[in-house]
Every structure is written in C-alpha cells, then in structure tokens.
Amino acid sequence: MKIPRKILFVLSAPLELVPRPYAAPAAQAGLTEKALLQKIKAYKKAGLIRRVGVVLGHFKAGYKCNALVAWKIDPAVLELTGNILAGFAQVTHCYARRTFPQWPYNLYTMVHARDKKEVQALIRDMARKSGIKEYKVQTTLREFKKVKSNLKEILA
C-alpha cells in the first residue's frame, strides 16, 4: 500500500481544534470526509500510520529531565537486552545503532523522569535489571530544535 503524496502532505499537518477537524484536510485532498477517514483507518491497519493521537509537551506533563543513554551490549544478547530496556515505561525510544572504534555503544534509550535524581535512579535500575556494566549517560541540557517531521521537505 502506498499513500499518495497529496494525502500524505495534507495529513502531516496537525488537526485543528474545531468540531470537524477532518473536513479541511479532506477538502484539500479532494476527498469526502468519510473517504479520508476510511483511508486513515486503512493506513493505520497497514502500519503506515502508527497512531492518530495527541502529542503531549512532556515538560508540561511532568517530565522535566531526560537523558539519552548509550549502552554497550554483547551482540549475542542484544535482542534480549533491547526488549528488557524497551519494557520500561519511562523509556520512549530504544534503538540498536551502528558502532565506531572510538564509540562502541550499540544500544540507545531515551529516558524521561521528573528530575535528574529520578533519571539517575531509573538508569541504575535499568542497568541492574539488564546486567549491563558499560554505559554512557548524556543528560539533555538544552533543546535547540524540536519540530514535527516536515514530510514535504523530507520527501522533496
């Protein structure tokens, strides 16, 4: 299944807070509201859309501190360890990534908590439960940019 560019770009804009938020994007895509909703459901079923939902500002939601933790995992247990770390509710992202001679870390997690102390306690808990000894914590100090992915530019 492929999403036509026109529909993709129309759907990549946030929904307006109005009684019929799908009406304007449907009109822009040259579809009826009903047809657009059916397409969204089909894309969701096919996994092209992961979810339709509210995106929260996590700072306001009480998560004032976060860190990117880079873990060094024995490749033989990567699958198991990745699943253990991904199982923590405070972990939003857990990815295996390419390594470099000067940077041997192969698993990455984004962890979120109330404050630095809570982030540190959480990371210790993750290390204990997964048995990982070597890791590096990169606490986020400043947000330079955070925007919704600009599909029009990316796919241009």
Partner: peptide, 12 residues
C-alpha cells in the same frame, strides 16, 4: 503547552 498537537503519526 500540555498538548503540542493532534495528528496522525506516520511510520517514516
């Protein structure tokens, strides 16, 4: 600022 936006999230 609690809600940033509502939108479909694509699997890029």
């Amino acid at each position: 600022g609690l809600i940033r936006y509502i939108a479909p999230m694509f699997d890029l």
